[in-house]
Design a protein around this nucleic acid. Structure first.
Length: 355
DNA sequence: AAGTCGGGGTA
DNA sequence: TACCCAGACTT
């Protein structure tokens, strides 16, 4: 009897052990001819970029509740989409999500294209997402490569070429490995294997369905793969944030960030620019208007993709009416605050000011 | 090819 | 602390 193929080994493991993502329909629960909702597959794949399943889950359900179809999302105000995305990070994903929904609604009659090439022309859909959507939503044969796949395959085949130079080889190997039947389940199985068994540190080789065919199984080498270029250390930037509070209502003064760049289009409290040579002694010069600003004891520490941030937080209590209304600023009462498009660093600043 | 974009989980 | 990332876009 011929030995089982690698794909068969993995799919058997997947059918027995793998946790299934809540929004992906299991093959056995699928009615004949029924396909998973491409809109939901697309939405989940965009959210899962650089983000864990645990972090995505509640956001995914909220988006499905607010906008059940791609047409609903296309018709939604971008402002509402940014609010619903607030806290998930990488906010350009939310802007591109909205653009993509509009394109699908207007140029594709509300239906997602089924082939990888066309999918990749849509905003926010790159090589990974295009392959994932084509194979999971449309059962197309595609080589899905994300960080998990890179880790699993560099170990399985002992690929010691550093990333990103190894990407073409990994893509080709994934293409050869992917079976004609159930290609989408296979892709999800490899990613699931990477998330649960073939982990970056201390992989559980003893539990791996590929242990007998893996080039580095249970060896010291496994943890060192995939090889990557050494990463440079993050600099620290400094700045000040100013929280104005209306004592009568508890409302705080907010404003909108510029549409592009860091935290583009998101809501913030007034503050200085952030720089490595920020003069903390002269922070009050950056206040949005003169007031009795009091420095809070605890500063805000936050880490972005490529720098650390330390923010001095100032608070002033003043009546909202005493301030000349600016077109770009608004007061937000405590019950409205949770719905504002506030990124995590701004929620930290508000906590430091209000607690 | 390198830089820009958050945030949470681990050790 | 300091790592690890379930990528895509811009320059």
């Amino acid at each position: 009897m011929a030995s089982a193929s690698p794909a068969r080994l993995l799919l058997d493991w997947y059918d027995r052990h793998a946790r299934r993502l809540p929004w992906r329909v299991a093959p056995e629960d699928r009615k004949l001819g029924e396909i998973p909702d491409p809109y939901r597959i697309w939405l989940s794949e965009i959210m899962l970029q650089q983000t864990t399943v645990a972090a995505v889950k509640d956001y995914f359900e909220k988006f499905c509740r607010l906008w059940p179809t791609v047409e609903d999302l296309a018709a939604a105000p971008e402002e509402d989409v940014m609010k619903a995305w607030a806290g998930l990070g990488y906010y350009s994903r939310a802007r591109n999500l909205k653009k993509c929904a509009e394109t699908v609604a207007s140029d594709h009659a509300g239906r997602f294209p089924e082939d990888e090439k066309t999918l990749q022309t849509l905003p926010g859909i790159g090589p990974y997402s295009a392959a994932a959507i084509a194979t999971i939503a449309f059962d197309r044969h595609a080589a899905v490569v994300d960080g998990n796949v890179e880790r699993v395959l560099t170990r399985l085949f002992r690929i010691e070429t550093p990333l990103p130079d190894a990407k073409p080889q990994i893509k080709a190997q994934m293409g050869e490995l992917t079976p004609e039947k159930r290609p989408g389940d296979f892709a999800q199985a490899v990613m699931d294997l990477g998330a649960t068994i073939c982990t970056p540190k201390r992989p559980a080789c003893a539990l791996c369905p590929w242990r007998d065919i893996c080039a580095v199984q249970s060896s010291e080498l496994a943890e060192t793969l995939p090889r990557k270029a050494p990463k440079k250390q993050k600099p620290t930037r400094f700045g000040a944030a100013f929280v104005a509070v209306d004592p009568a209502t508890g409302a705080v003064l907010l404003r909108r960030r510029p549409p592009k760049g860091l935290l583009g289009g998101m809501t913030e409290v007034p503050g200085s620019d952030w720089s490595e040579d920020f003069d903390t002694e002269a922070a009050l010069e950056h206040a949005p208007f003169p007031a009795d600003w009091r420095k809070r004891m605890n500063e805000v520490k936050h880490t972005f993709t490529h720098f650390h941030l330390r923010l001095a937080v100032y608070r002033a209590d003043l009546a909202a009416e005493s301030l000349n209304a600016s077109a770009r600023d608004w007061w937000s009462t405590p019950d409205m605050l949770s719905e504002e498009a506030l990124p995590t660093v701004m929620r930290k600043a508000l906590t430091a000011a209000l607690d």
